[in-house]
């Protein structure tokens, strides 16, 4: 079990010795039980840190923001940033390291093991409790959660409220860390791509109907892009915000600016956007499920990324986010890569 006191003690030490600039972790939000990201700068503030099954967010995204912020500063603070990561988040860190987006010495990783469970799916939890207010939720001794409501404690088996991605998780403990809290459990899911099975068993027409319906809903708020730790391109293909229009930009230059995707939220354009996002995340997505969680229209975006993760594994034997020294999926090849689809 992860000892919260140990976590706080560790964080306090780091801040006292001024080893880190600040620590990114979780704290209790003001609205109900859901945690919010916490940026702890003073040793006395570590008391705010929490760790419970509701800490679902992937905090790695803040490393991207931190790098951008640092690039703008004249005399940046060169100390590393402390970051609290779960197993999945640590793989995201690995991908960023692999792509040389961040340097290892710029981060101090406090790893937390999810041990026997994972994090809960808030929607499933609300459904399960039928509107009852949750006072507290803890990891159970065995495979489950202890949920305290107004009516007392209940033990809920993890299969009922565990997030779908956690059921398919292949790294329950951080794969890269400076300090690890909790133990390294040895367990593997029976099938890491179980959620895809249902979709793959549908016929082609049914799949098309499904995705047509789903992607038609998209309002192009780009929340999926904003929350993704891997979506860090300075200029995204879908919007041209960085296209500098100066006094000497001619009308011709403006007209010739390539517009790959229209901004209108219509099916054909949504399609290109989500497809290209999925392709960009091939071999990089570590399945933290943030895109799906933040989607205001509940589009099952995770499936697209999961499918590519599966293909990367099956066609090319590539595991995402385990080895930062390996070349990334599309920047390497093998002689024996499949080519049966090529004439």
């Amino acid at each position: 079990m992860v000892n919260l006191e140990e976590l706080k003690e560790n964080a306090k030490e780091l801040l006292k010795q001024e080893k880190v600039k600040y620590i990114i972790g979780y704290k209790r939000g003001t609205n109900g039980l859901m945690p919010v990201p916490a940026f702890i700068k003073k040793p006395e503030d570590v008391e705010n840190l929490i760790w419970d099954p509701l800490c679902i967010y992937n905090l790695t995204r803040f490393l991207v923001d931190e790098k951008r912020k640092k690039a703008k500063q004249k005399n940046p603070d060169e100390r590393p940033v402390g970051l609290i990561v779960k197993g999945c988040d640590s793989r995201a860190v690995n991908v960023l390291l692999q792509e040389k987006f961040i340097n290892r010495e710029d981060i101090y990783i406090i790893g937390i093991s999810c041990e026997n469970t994972g994090v809960v799916d808030e929607k499933k939890l609300v459904k399960k409790l039928k509107g009852k207010k949750v006072k507290k939720i803890e990891f159970g001794k065995k495979n489950g959660f202890i949920v305290s409501t107004e009516d007392g404690q209940v033990e809920v088996p993890s299969s009922e409220i565990l997030a779908e991605r956690c059921q398919e998780c292949i790294a329950h403990f951080p794969v890269v860390y400076d300090v690890l809290l909790g133990e390294k459990p040895k367990r593997k899911p029976d099938n890491p791509f179980k959620s895809l099975e249902k979709m793959e068993s549908l016929s082609r027409e049914e799949r098309w109907t499904f995705w047509k319906e789903q992607l038609d809903k998209c309002i192009r708020c780009y929340a999926c892009r904003s929350t993704c730790p891997m979506c860090y391109c300075d200029e995204c293909v879908v919007d041209t915000i960085n296209f500098a229009v100066t006094a000497d930009t001619t009308a011709e230059e403006k007209a010739q600016k390539i517009k790959w995707v229209e901004k209108s939220p219509v099916l054909s354009e949504n399609f290109v956007y989500h497809f290209i996002r999925a392709i960009h995340l091939a071999g990089r997505c570590i399945d933290c499920g943030e895109c799906e969680r933040v989607c205001p229209l509940d589009i099952p975006l995770r499936f697209l990324n999961k499918k590519l993760e599966k293909e990367a594994k099956e066609l090319f034997g590539y595991d995402v986010g385990f080895d930062p020294d390996r070349p990334s999926l599309v920047s390497c090849f093998k002689e024996e890569d499949p080519e049966d689809f090529i004439r």
Partner: peptide, 20 residues
């Protein structure tokens, strides 16, 4: 050879969403 890998992924994804 890079193209082979990339196009394989595009093809799989196109099929997954039900494109002919």
């Amino acid at each position: 050879l890079y193209a082979r890998r990339r196009i394989a992924l595009v093809k799989e994804l196109l099929e997954f969403i039900g494109f002919e």
